[in-house]
Computed example of a mutant assay.
Amino acid sequence: MSMRRRLVLGISLAMGLASGLAAGQAHAGMWLSSPDLAADGTLTAPQAWDRDGCGGKNLSPALRWGGEAPTTKSFALIIMDADVKKGFRHWMVFNIPAGVHSLAAGAGAADGKALPKGAVQALNDFGPKGYGGPCPPPGQTHRYVFTIYALNKDTLDLNPDQPAGALESLVLTHALDKGRLLAKSPRFEAPEKTTEKAKPADEKPAPKAEPATSGPKPAPGEIPK
Rank of each mutant, 00 (worst) to 15 (best):
L32G: 01
R64T: 07
A62H: 09
Y144P: 05
E222K: 13
L32P: 00
P70A: 01
F94I: 11
A23V: 02
P46V: 04
A107S: 15
A22F: 08
A76S: 11
V93I: 15
S74L: 03
A98H: 12
G56E: 12
P200S: 13
T72C: 08
M3K: 12
D154I: 06
L167D: 07
A119C: 07
P128N: 08
K178F: 10
T42H: 06
K225E: 11
I79E: 11
G133Y: 04
G139N: 06
A22W: 13
I79S: 05
A212P: 06
I148T: 07
A82S: 12
G127F: 03
K199G: 02
M15A: 15
G10H: 03
R5C: 06
D36N: 13
L37P: 06
S185W: 01
M80S: 11
D154A: 13
F146K: 00
D125Y: 05
E68Q: 15
K153M: 06
A114K: 14
F188W: 07
K129N: 08
E196I: 09
D161V: 04
K199F: 09
T44A: 12
H90N: 13
R6W: 08
A114D: 15
A45W: 00
Y131G: 02
A198R: 09
G10R: 13
K86V: 01
A69M: 09
G112Y: 12
P211Y: 01
F126V: 02
D83F: 07
Q162A: 15
A82P: 00
A82E: 13
H142I: 02
K225C: 01
R5L: 14
K113F: 08
C135H: 10
K57T: 09
G55P: 01
I78N: 05
K225N: 09
A114P: 01
M15I: 15
A14S: 14
Q25L: 14
E68G: 13
P128H: 10
P61S: 03
T173L: 06
P200N: 11
G108P: 04
H27E: 14
R64Q: 11
K204F: 02
I96H: 09
G24I: 11
H174Q: 01
T141A: 10
G87E: 03
A105C: 04
T71S: 13
D111P: 12
E210Q: 12
A164E: 11
A110D: 01
A175W: 03
D161L: 11
E222G: 02
A219R: 12
K208E: 14
S60H: 06
A76H: 07
T213I: 08
S102Q: 15
A183G: 00
A119Y: 05
T173A: 03
I96E: 05
A69H: 12
M15R: 08
T173G: 00
A62E: 15
P136R: 04
H27P: 00
K217T: 04
P211A: 14
S19E: 04
E192K: 14
E222S: 10
F88T: 09
G112R: 07
T44S: 10
L151G: 02
K204R: 13
P116W: 06
D177T: 03
H27S: 11
A201D: 10
P137L: 14
A23F: 05
I148E: 00
P35Q: 10
